[in-house]
Design a protein around this nucleic acid. Structure first.
Length: 568
RNA sequence: CGGGGCGUGGCGCAGUUUGGUAGCGCGUCUGAUUUGGGAUCAGAAGGUCGCAGGUUCAAAUCCUGUCGCCCCGACCA
C-alpha cells in the first residue's frame, strides 16, 4: 500500500473526548472515528486489525468444530417474549417498531434467535452436538458508553452457541471452547488470565472470563500467588479464617449518643472503634421485598453475590424515604438490631464480637452488639467483595488483585433457553429432552482496544505482529530522490511477493513526519532508506518495540524482515 | 437516572464575567526555498460561534428551551 493513497488521517493532538490510552491512540493513529456516542467507524488500518483478530478467532472456532453462520441483527419481540427476556432485559436493549407497529430489538445477544433456529431444524440426538457461531455487530444501549471501543453501544462480537444432548456433552463442548479461547489469546500475543466468573444475566452455572491484563481495565481480578486460582472480584469466594477465636466475654449492649455521626469513618473517629469492629447495614429492595445486608465496616458488599443468594430478578438499594418508613432512621444510623426485615449477614460477622452498628434511630449507635444474642439473621452468607490479602479458597496462599479487560466470556447455560423456548430433541430411547446449551463470546473490537492498552509507548501503538495492520513500513527519507524511491520500490515489491504486508511511505513529506506517523500507527518493522547508507547499498531495519536499529545490505533485507516476523 | 463539565473553521483552544459584528496554534490549498524525528517564508481558502426561540439599536456573550459530547456517581449508611 502506498501511504500517498492510504486513507489514514493521523492527528497530532489528542482529541479532547478521549480519556484512556487506547481511545486516544486509535483516534490519533487514524484507526477509528466516532460517529455517535459509543458508535464508531473503522478506517482502513483499524479494520485490517479487526479482520485479523476475526480471522484468528474464526480459525480457532473452526478447528474446535464450530460452523460459521450469520444471524439477523433485527430480532422480533416474540422470540424475546418466549424466553421471558423481553421484559427483563430492560433499557439496555435498543427497541424499534416497524410500519405495522410490530416490535423488534437490535440484537444485544443471540440466544433467542439461535435457539429458535436450532429448534426448527434439529430434532434428533444424531444431530448433536452442534456448535454454531457468528461474528457480527451487537447492540447494547449502555447506561454510559465510554472509553472508545472499550464499552460501546455497537460493537463487534464473536458468539458461539453449543447444543448437546446432556451435561457431559456440554462439559466437552465447554472444554473445547476453553482451550480454543486460550489458543486465541496466545496467538493474539496478549498477556491474559482466565478467571472464574459470575454468569450474570445470561444465566447458567459455570463461567470463565478471559481477561487481558492492563492497568486501565474495568474489571478487578483476584488471583492466588501460589496456585492457579483466579476469579473476578464479583465471583471470588471469600472464606472465613477458621483460626479466629471468638470466645471473648460478651459485653452488654450499650446505646450511645452519636450526634451527626453517619459514616463508618465518623464512628471510627468519634467512638474510637476500628472499622473492622463495626458492621454496616444496607437496605435493598429485592423484587419489592425490603431486606437488609450486613458486612464488616471496612468491607464492600458484593451485590452480585447477594442477588444470587436471594435469587431475585432485580436488586436495588432502597432510597432514603423507603428506609425512613421502615425504621425512622436515615442512612447512617441503620443496624440489624430490632430491624423488622430479613437480615443477611456476611460470613465474617459470625466471627465478630462486641461490635458497633447503627441503632435505627438518628444520632444513636449501639456498642457491644453480638450476632445471635442481639439479632438473628435470616442467613449467614458470603456477600462481600474479596480484597487483597484474603486467603485463597483453594490453598494456603494469599490473594492479590490486578486489573484486566474482559475480552472473552464463556458460559454453561444448561437448559435455561432450550426449555423456555421448547428446543428439544429425541434421545436414543425416543424420549424428548431439552438441548443442553453453552454460549461463548469474544469482544472483537474490545480486543483491539485491549491490545493497544497493553502495547504502546510515548510515540504510539506497538501492534503485536499477528494483528498488526501491516507488517512493514518502508520510508524513503526523501521521496524526491529517485535512487531512494527506486530502492524502496524494489524492497516493497520483493516483500509483497512474499506475502509480507507492506506500506511504502511515498508521500512528499519530511522524514520526521513519516517517522512520527510510522511510530504512531505501530507498524512492527520500519525500513528506512537514507542517502548515506544507500551509498553502501544498505538500509536501516528497526523493530517498533526496540530503540536500536540494524544496518542491512539490500540483498539481505528480505531475510532480516522474515527473521523478525517469524512465520506470518 | 443523578451530579459536574463542554459544544466557537478539519483538530486543539482563546474570546462569554463587563453585549458592539470572531481570533490564535496546528492542519488544508498555491508558490518558493527546504528534506534523517511533526521545516521556513509569502499568499489563500474555510466559521449562520450545536440548534430553536426570546431580550436588545446591537447577542458567541444575557434569558428560556432543546440536542449532542465527555467525566464522575449508591461514599458505603
Amino acid at each position: 500500500m502506498r501511504s500517498s493513497e492510504l486513507f489514514n488521517p493521523t492527528l497530532r493532538e489528542i482529541p479532547s473526548e478521549a480519556e484512556i490510552i487506547s481511545h486516544q491512540l486509535l483516534l490519533r493513529a487514524g484507526f477509528i472515528r466516532k460517529t455517535s456516542g459509543g458508535i464508531y467507524s473503522y478506517l482502513p488500518l483499524g479494520y485490517r486489525v479487526i479482520k485479523k483478530i476475526m480471522q484468528i478467532v474464526r480459525e480457532e472456532m473452526d478447528l474446535a468444530g464450530g460452523q460459521e453462520i450469520l444471524m439477523p441483527i433485527i430480532q422480533p419481540a416474540e422470540l424475546w417474549q418466549k424466553s421471558g427476556r423481553w421484559d427483563v432485559y430492560g433499557d439496555e436493549m435498543f427497541r424499534l417498531n416497524d410500519r405495522h407497529n410490530r416490535h423488534f430489538a437490535l440484537g444485544p445477544t443471540h440466544e433467542e434467535i439461535i435457539t429458535a433456529l436450532v429448534d426448527g431444524d434439529v430434532h434428533s440426538y444424531r444431530d448433536l452436538p452442534l456448535l454454531l457461531y457468528q461474528i457480527q455487530n451487537k447492540y447494547r444501549d449502555e447506561i454510559r458508553p465510554r472509553f472508545g471501543l472499550m464499552r460501546g453501544r455497537e460493537f463487534i462480537m464473536k458468539d458461539l452457541y453449543s447444543f448437546d444432548i446432556d451435561d457431559e456433552g456440554l462439559d466437552i463442548s465447554y472444554r473445547k471452547m476453553y482451550a480454543a479461547y486460550r489458543r486465541i489469546y496466545e496467538r493474539l500475543n496478549l498477556k491474559f488470565r482466565v478467571v472464574e466468573a459470575d454468569s450474570g444475566a445470561i444465566g447458567g452455572n459455570e463461567s470463565h472470563e478471559f481477561m487481558v491484563l492492563a492497568d486501565t481495565g474495568e474489571s478487578e481480578i483476584v488471583y492466588c500467588a501460589q496456585c492457579e486460582y483466579a476469579a473476578n472480584v464479583e465471583k471470588a469466594v471469600c472464606s472465613v479464617d477458621e483460626e479466629i477465636q471468638n470466645d471473648a466475654a460478651l459485653l452488654p449492649v450499650e446505646k450511645v449518643h452519636t450526634p451527626g455521626q453517619k459514616t463508618i469513618q465518623d464512628i471510627v473517629d468519634y467512638l474510637n472503634i476500628p472499622a473492622a469492629n463495626q458492621i454496616k447495614t444496607l437496605l435493598y429492595l429485592a423484587d419489592d421485598e425490603l431486606i437488609a445486608a450486613c458486612v464488616r465496616g471496612d468491607r464492600e458488599l458484593n451485590e452480585i453475590k447477594l442477588k444470587n443468594i436471594l435469587g431475585c430478578n432485580q436488586l436495588f438499594m432502597a432510597d432514603e424515604d423507603t428506609v425512613k418508613r421502615k425504621c425512622a432512621a436515615g442512612f447512617g444510623s441503620l443496624g440489624p438490631v430490632g430491624l423488622d426485615v430479613k437480615v443477611y449477614a456476611d460470613l465474617e460477622i459470625e466471627k465478630m464480637q462486641n461490635f458497633a452498628c447503627g441503632a435505627n434511630e438518628n444520632d444513636y449507635h449501639y456498642k457491644n452488639v453480638n450476632l445471635g444474642r442481639d439479632f438473628v439473621p435470616e442467613s449467614i452468607v458470603d456477600i462481600r467483595n474479596a480484597v487483597a490479602g484474603d486467603k485463597c479458597p483453594h490453598c494456603e496462599g494469599i490473594l492479590k488483585i490486578i486489573r484486566g479487560i474482559e475480552v472473552g466470556h464463556i458460559f454453561k447455560l444448561g437448559v435455561k433457553y432450550s426449555q423456555a423456548m421448547g428446543a428439544t430433541f429425541l434421545d436414543q430411547k425416543g424420549m424428548e429432552k431439552p438441548m443442553v446449551m453453552g454460549c461463548y463470546g469474544i469482544g472483537i473490537s474490545r480486543t483491539m482496544a485491549a491490545a493497544v492498552e497493553q502495547n504502546y509507548d510515548e510515540n504510539g501503538i506497538i501492534w503485536p505482529i499477528p494483528i498488526a495492520p501491516y507488517h512493514v513500513i518502508i520510508i524513503p527519507v526523501n521521496s524526491k530522490k529517485e535512487d531512494q524511491m527506486e530502492a524502496a520500490r524494489s524492497i516493497y515489491e520483493e516483500l509483497n511477493k512474499q506475502g509480507i504486508e507492506t506500506i511504502i511511505d511515498d508521500r512528499d513529506e519530511r522524514a520526521g513526519v513519516k517517522f512520527k506517523d510510522a511510530d504512531l500507527t505501530g507498524i512492527p518493522v520500519k525500513i528506512t532508506i537514507g542517502p548515506k547508507t544507500l551509498q553502501e547499498n544498505k538500509v536501516e531495519v528497526k523493530k517498533r518495540w526496540e530503540s536500536e536499529m540494524q544496518l542491512v545490505p539490500l540483498d539481505l533485507v528480505l531475510d532480516a524482515v522474515k527473521n523478525i516476523l517469524g512465520n506470518v
